[in-house]
């Protein structure tokens, strides 16, 4: 449940080595699938996987699943990031509040989101609400923790300087605390996005009628490994794309932070 977040503000990697590695993996995969070491029904070739992917794209199923999953993950992420971010600022800035809620968070945090699926279903049914709330909850905890940590590490001297320069509370928040915590906020959002994908899969496997993980489950029941491989690759690419976009946005806003 706990993915390691990439360091924020890292310079974009060179494309060459990444493409080379992808090519090597593809080649190995092809050779392994063709060697007969694995039963053909269990490991599709890259070509069969690509065909399954193209098939899904043509029929519109892929777009529908992608849309359903993105909507769930996006809405859950937005809600969780908003609430978690606000809580992170509050507890990071107010040590007394932090002392009160930290034990609660420490207790809740190790419970994987997937363990909450049955409870969420019991409370909210198998509709969209349960899924969105589950994702929001997982994102909230992740974002809260990161933002809390970042805000509580903002140097006291920044806030002291701002106060002795006559900046009122709203300026100390928007012009000092917010930018000072921005690198941590960015790391929190990137981590939160990866958690949202994990929770999305957990939520869809717990009962859904559309979505990327739901499709994986259906394909699994029919032993369509080519489609399952295609679905897993789409999930992986989705995660990479979301992180890439968040990192790019972050570099625009957090330009002063050491890269």
């Amino acid at each position: 449940m706990h993915a390691t977040p990439s360091p924020p503000g890292r310079a974009p990697g060179r494309l060459g080595p990444a493409l080379g590695a992808a090519g090597a993996v593809l080649a190995l995969w092809y050779l392994l699938a063709r060697s007969g070491a694995v039963a053909p029904g269990l490991l599709p070739t890259p070509g069969a996987t690509a065909a399954a992917l193209a098939d899904g794209a043509r029929s519109g199923i892929l777009a529908a699943d992608l849309g359903a999953s993105l909507a769930r993950a996006g809405q859950g992420f937005a809600l969780g990031a908003l609430v978690g971010g606000a809580l992170g600022f509050a507890t990071g800035y107010l040590p007394r509040l932090s002392a009160a809620v930290t034990p609660v968070v420490s207790f809740l945090r190790p419970i994987p989101a997937i363990a909450l699926v049955p409870l969420a279903t019991a409370w909210f049914g198998i509709g969209e609400t349960a899924k969105r709330l589950l994702i929001a909850y997982a994102v909230l905890l992740a974002v809260w923790l990161y933002v809390h940590d970042g805000v509580s590490r903002v140097p006291e001297s920044y806030l002291r300087a701002a106060r002795s320069l006559g900046a009122p509370l709203h300026r100390r928040f928007t012009e000092v605390l917010l930018p000072a915590a921005a690198p941590a906020l960015l790391a929190a959002l990137r981590y939160g996005a990866s958690v949202a994908l994990l929770a999305l899969v957990a939520a869809e496997l717990g009962g859904a009628d559309s979505g990327l993980a739901y499709r994986l489950q259906v394909d699994g029941q029919f032993l369509r490994v080519d489609r399952m491989f295609a679905g897993l690759i789409v999930l992986g690419l989705l995660g990479v794309a979301v992180d890439f976009v968040l990192a790019a946005i972050g570099r625009r806003f957090v330009h002063w932070s050491a890269s």
């Binding site: 140097p155 001297s157 920044y158 002291r160 300087a161 012009e175 930018p179 000072a180 002063w256 932070s257």
Partner: peptide
């Protein structure tokens, strides 16, 4: 004026 300047790096 602080020992470690306390300038806003952004």
């Amino acid at each position: 004026v602080f020992q470690h300047y306390a300038l806003f790096p952004w």
